[in-house]
């Protein structure tokens, strides 16, 4: 049996189970509601997309990291049952990861795309922006589900695991920018472009923000790190660098989590 067949079977099962999850349904409906409200009050233009950017940058990581952690804890007994079958652990892990990442990111995409179609927002001028938004939402989901799995595999205690997940979200989505700004104001006279760039690469939420805002081309709302990136690289190089860094942000936690999963005593 090849690696992919086991993983695909686990993914198929997860899809059919999660399709009936009220939790996921609530997520899709909330995203749809917010999208609908933004498009209704702003009209189908860039301002509505900007509103969605904030939703994506805050809510997607939160949902992915908490849902991911809880999900793996809830699957604990089932994972034991899977491990008692003649299957390889890395294949099971990959199946579980894709089996959650696919429906959660699909949930976000449906939640945005359907109301956007309803309001006729898929116009020539907005399609690029909305498409980038959804691609970034997918990337953030992939990153934060990977982080969640890394936490849940390594931390035996459910409450502690969830607390760590929340702390990770707080750190990346909320506190990080504040800390960067603080540093900038403290070292206002020093040349800060390179440290700021490094700081940006070290935070997937920042990376996602830069990717989005480079694409939307709204420099006023780019924040300090985005401005630095744009000056340093220009759009295309910045895009490539940010995409590469985001891929690393998926690969590294996934690899660490997978390694712990393979070595773990269940």
């Amino acid at each position: 049996m090849t690696a992919l067949t086991t993983a695909i079977k686990v993914v198929k099962f997860e899809l059919s189970d999660l399709a009936r999850s009220r939790w996921l349904l609530a997520y899709v409906l909330s995203v749809a509601l917010v999208t609908d409200a933004l498009l209704r009050f702003n009209g189908a233009d860039q301002r509505a997309v900007l509103g969605l950017v904030n939703v994506v940058l805050l809510i997607v990581p939160l949902v992915a990291v908490t849902f991911g952690t809880m999900h793996l804890y809830a699957r604990r007994d089932f994972i034991e049952l899977l491990l008692a079958q003649p299957l390889r652990r890395p294949h099971i892990f990959l199946g579980l990861y894709l089996g959650l990442t696919i429906p959660v990111s699909l949930g976000m995409i449906v939640g945005v795309a359907v109301p956007a179609a309803w309001h006729g927002a898929w116009t020539a001028s907005l399609t690029g922006a909305l498409g980038t938004l959804l691609a970034v939402a997918l990337a953030l989901t992939a990153v934060f589900v990977a982080l969640a799995f890394c936490i849940a595999v390594r931390c035996e205690d459910k409450v502690r695991g969830l607390a760590i997940a929340m702390a990770v979200w707080m750190a990346f989505a909320v506190l990080y920018d504040g800390a960067v700004l603080l540093l900038v104001s403290i070292f206002a006279d020093a040349p800060l472009e390179r440290p700021i760039l490094a700081a940006m690469l070290a935070n997937p939420v920042d990376l996602a923000r830069v990717l989005l805002l480079l694409q939307l081309d709204i420099s006023a709302l780019m924040g300090y790190t985005g401005a630095v990136l744009k000056n340093a690289f220009g759009s295309v190089q910045g895009l490539i660098l940010a995409t590469a860094a985001l891929s690393l942000w998926v690969a590294v936690p996934l690899w660490l989590g997978g390694r712990s999963f393979v070595r773990k005593d269940f």
């Binding site: 009936r20 809830a74 007994d77 049952l81």
Partner: peptide, 17 residues
């Protein structure tokens, strides 16, 4: 493990299945 059947201690199965 294809030669083994395992009955774990009161497991929690996936909710919706």
């Amino acid at each position: 493990r294809s030669r083994i059947g395992y009955m774990p201690q009161s497991p929690r199965f996936p909710d919706h299945l």
